[in-house]
């Protein structure tokens, strides 16, 4: 079971959280301006890397806040967590 660091509550066990998929995919301001292909990409296409992934977590059984995390999908190491709305942190290393 992962230990997830909520930006508001600190390190908490994974079972308190809900996973929300890839982060930083904003809902288009005007969906009607998108063609079907673009809309499908917004809805369904995700990068799914082996390595560092920016993803959404919700501290559902805690403070209730959504936040973002950088997690290495190969090692499960969390490199950073940060409140929703903030820019993805630059960890350096040119990834």
């Amino acid at each position: 079971m992962l230990l997830v660091t909520c930006p508001h509550c600190g390190a908490r066990p994974e079972i308190e959280f809900r996973y929300g998929g890839e982060a930083h995919i904003a809902r288009p301001a005007d969906p009607s301006a998108l063609d079907d292909r673009q809309w499908a990409e917004f809805l369904y296409f995700r990068s799914n890397p082996k390595g560092v992934y920016a993803e959404r977590w919700n501290h559902a059984h805690g403070c209730g806040r959504w936040f973002n995390a950088l997690r290495d999908t190969a090692s499960d190491a969390f490199l950073a967590t940060y409140p929703a709305g903030q820019q993805r942190p630059d960890l350096g290393g040119g990834r």
């Binding site: 929300g20 809902r27 959404r56 919700n58 559902a60 209730g64 806040r65 959504w66 929703a84 709305g85």
Partner: peptide, 13 residues
């Protein structure tokens, strides 16, 4: 409720 909170917090704060 979770669906509403998600939109409220992350799309329309």
């Amino acid at each position: 409720l979770a669906h509403m909170e998600d939109y409220l917090q992350t799309e329309w704060p």
